[in-house]
């Protein structure tokens, strides 16, 4: 990691303050929960099904609103999704009627769609960037090794290729925060490891802050320099496991890696 990240590592990217969240007619998932993620950090969020880890991600993404307390991204609340937050979901979220290239170019089209609106609102809405170019689309297409598939439709791709398209699409708008919700859970083991390595590489290339939600212990240890462990709802306090050696491609399979996996497993079992 370069110096820029070290310099601003104290600045928070995500601040969750005294968060309470409950789905309608259900007991709260979070109660008085606080958590901070600094700029440039690599986080993994792990916990059993129904613990609220995806909910936390959706709150940070601006797709859900807290029942109580605050969720801030770059010191501002997120009443709606910001274009500078990328979101990658387990089932890819690709447009089935658009080719690979068109799917990746969607942020560019959205930017053009809103280009003239940008000046109208007093409060600058987090519109997508208006000046993305086809050349940038091509660059990400090549970087994610899916140039051969550029004119295919999502239904013609493998799961791993689809997720590469989704990642390319969210990176096109140069996000400073990338949220991944169980991104590789439906992929086979080798493809999953492949994409985990790619995530590590892309992080190094873009300095993006990452939060990976997963139920997979090894994935959490490989991708999270800091691991947030959630337990049974309601979550009231953040349990954090430090894992500074993560996020380098060679980490997988080292003794330290297996030790961390064992430690995380113990933490999860303790609830």
């Amino acid at each position: 990691m370069n110096q820029r990240v070290a310099d601003c590592s104290a600045r928070p990217m995500i601040e969750v303050r005294d968060l309470t969240f409950a789905y309608a007619d259900q007991p709260p998932v979070f109660r008085g929960f606080s958590w901070t993620a600094a700029v440039g950090e690599a986080w993994a969020v792990i916990g059993p099904s129904g613990c609220g880890k995806s909910t936390l991600l959706y709150l940070v993404a601006g797709l859900r609103q807290p029942t109580g307390g605050q969720v801030l991204v770059e010191a501002r609340p997120v009443p709606r999704p910001r274009a500078s937050t990328g979101l990658v979901l387990q089932d890819y979220g690709l447009l089935p009627w658009a080719t690979v290239w068109e799917n990746i170019a969607l942020p560019m089209r959205l930017g053009q769609f809103y280009r003239d609106k940008k000046t109208l609102d007093a409060e600058p809405r987090p519109y997508p960037q208006p000046d993305l170019t086809p050349a940038q689309v091509d660059r990400w297409l090549t970087r994610l090794d899916i140039a051969v598939q550029r004119d295919k439709y999502p239904s013609q791709l493998s799961g791993g290729q689809r997720q590469r398209v989704a990642i390319a699409r969210s990176l096109l708008q140069q996000p400073n925060l990338l949220l991944l919700d169980e991104p590789f859970s439906s992929l086979d083991a080798l493809t999953r490891e492949d994409l985990q390595r790619l995530t590590v590489e892309l992080r190094a290339e873009t300095d993006v802050t990452t939060v990976v939600v997963t139920h997979n212990i090894e994935e959490a240890v490989y991708l999270g320099q800091r691991i947030l462990v959630l337990g049974k709802a309601p979550n009231t306090a953040a349990r954090i496991i430090e894992n500074p050696a993560a996020c380098v491609p060679e980490f997988r399979g080292q003794p330290a890696y297996w030790q961390q996996c064992a430690a995380l497993r113990a933490a999860l079992a303790a609830g």
């Binding site: 601006g62 690709l94 969607l106 769609f113």
Partner: peptide, 20 residues
């Protein structure tokens, strides 16, 4: 999920109409 991911790219109501 499709709506979420397109909204997360910064699409509002009108853009969702047009592109989704």
């Amino acid at each position: 999920e499709l709506i979420y991911s397109v909204r997360s790219l910064g699409a509002g109501r009108r853009a969702l109409f047009r592109y989704v």
